[in-house]
Design a protein around this nucleic acid. Structure first.
Lengths: 292, 292
DNA sequence: GTTCCGCATGAATCGATAG
DNA sequence: ACTATCGATTCATGCGGAA
């Protein structure tokens, strides 16, 4: 079956009207964050952010299936030494609109932006707000399970260096066999904290988030041939992830240049079977090897 | 100089009145979370949580120095399939009261509460909301610096194997010293995500948080002989951490049994010089050894 | 084919400077 | 006084080229 990736150029508030009621299984999006600089592209002033977003949220509520899920990636900026409160207000407003605020996942960024300030540390996390239309939404937890194996690998990695040397010196002591035992272990369910890196050195045009992020939620909340929607698709990361996971997807982008780039990227990605996305296990392994 | 640990039995709203204006350098507390079951101790109904907390917050605003910091450890519960919104509403209400919402730290719990639900993963994080009276609060960032991320990957690898084996043979002497040298040389400032275990090996009966948690903020926002306040001190973890770090502290607890236990614990802890708290670097190592 | 090293690159934030 | 722009600060990651 052919995977459809429908890309629209335009303001999502308008374009969304063309999408049928109850036709989308997952909405994953990262809207432009509030910004007090008006000149920036998409820079919505914090004071008007909720007002700006609500009509869009209303359309999203309409097009999502009752069993579907809406995941909103957002983080408030610092304004005049304080965190803005527009995300708090947005959550409250969305609930008044009828959305259920089911959960808040944390994206713990492994490589956050550097910098030093006298009153603040580097910001290393973003919100992933999960909203639903009903309490009986679909969730395929097994699809994002983490093998216990990387747990064991990490533990191995964190044996003190002296321990490892000691064990290495016992040639054929059975140490290796122990490792493989660990690796064969059962899988575990993840938590509501995702530990991923931001995409940094990619030659591709910069994306706001790595493909693993929408990929994780696509695997968790949809099955093959379901439909994923990103109303602020930007560099098209959500659509690319959906395509690689064999989900239909819809992407809406207001900037013509971005829209053209997405089209190119999607067309170029015509060998999904050979470019399978790395699964969460591999990613976790990389984390533990690097961090611990 | 003698470290004072003042413990009060009573309702903090009342007891706080006895504390002088502008006399506290850091407030760290984890109030009873909202709970729709009235029967539970301290169970405040979510709908009345803000109303209940505001008078206390007003007293806290009064007793805190203008250069001081208020850190609130809190996490909203799930009620009827949704995250409660009382924390969002509390943030907005505290700002109306005059508090500045400076930052939100994340406590990423490595070993979170086990369990499995069809519609939800395990909750592995809590909020640490930082509030201030002014924008010029004191912050001692160097006190909580962490070893740089690549210390294990790069620096250990650069040592020749013979070096490592030689050092290994000198049990506990040379090798350990080398390691601590590296740790002290290349440190980086941490981020706003704290990666701590919930209660790693602490023989203490259940506390809401590990001693490292208040310890981290005490080191970050106070110096020796400053005063730390916990109006809901519970098992006294904040006061114990303060004492070990040689800060004066005030603890208020409404339940007589808890109050008695804290008194005992504080009195038993009379050898602070021999029970120094591990610094963050060691903690990180312990975390990896214990958890991963 | 590996491993290793160098380097550009970030949904950042502050404070100073300029309009 | 208030807003817009700019330079300085900082560090994990992954890419590309080299050994």
């Amino acid at each position: 079956m052919e995977i459809k990736t429908d890309l629209y150029l335009g303001d999502c508030k308008e374009v969304l009207r063309r999408i049928a009621d109850n036709s989308v299984d997952l909405i994953f999006t990262s809207p432009p964050y509030a910004d007090q600089r008006k000149s920036t592209y998409g820079g919505i002033h914090p004071d008007r952010y909720v007002t700006w977003f609500l009509p869009i949220a209303e359309e999203l509520l309409r097009v999502l299936k009752s069993s579907g899920t809406f995941v909103l990636n957002i983080k408030e900026k610092v304004v005049d030494g304080e965190r803005s409160t527009y995300v708090m207000e947005l959550i409250l407003a969305l609930r008044r609109l009828g959305w259920l605020w089911t959960e808040e996942f944390i994206w713990h960024k492994k490589n956050c932006y550097p910098g030093k300030w006298p009153n603040r540390f580097r910001d290393a996390w973003e919100r992933l707000l999960q909203f639903n239309k009903t309490r009986s939404f679909k969730m395929y937890q097994e699809e994002v399970m983490v093998p216990m194996g990387d747990w064991a690998k990490t533990r191995l990695k964190n044996l003190s260096v002296t321990d490892r040397i000691r064990d290495n010196s016992r040639v054929g002591s059975g140490f290796g066999k122990n490792i493989s035992n660990w690796l064969e272990r059962d899988k575990a369910y993840p938590t509501n904290v995702l530990h991923l890196a931001t995409e940094c050195g990619n030659k591709n045009h910069s994306a706001a988030f790595p493909e693993e992020l929408p990929g994780w939620f696509i695997k968790l909340f949809t099955t093959k041939h379901d439909t994923v929607l990103d109303p602020f698709t930007g560099s098209g990361t959500t659509n690319l992830a959906a395509k690689k996971l064999q989900r239909h997807s819809i992407g809406i982008e207001i900037v013509p240049e971005y829209y053209a780039q997405i089209k190119t990227a999607i067309d170029a990605d015509n060998a999904p079977l050979f470019k399978l996305m790395p699964d969460y296990a591999q990613t976790e392994n990389q984390r533990c090897l690097a961090v611990c």
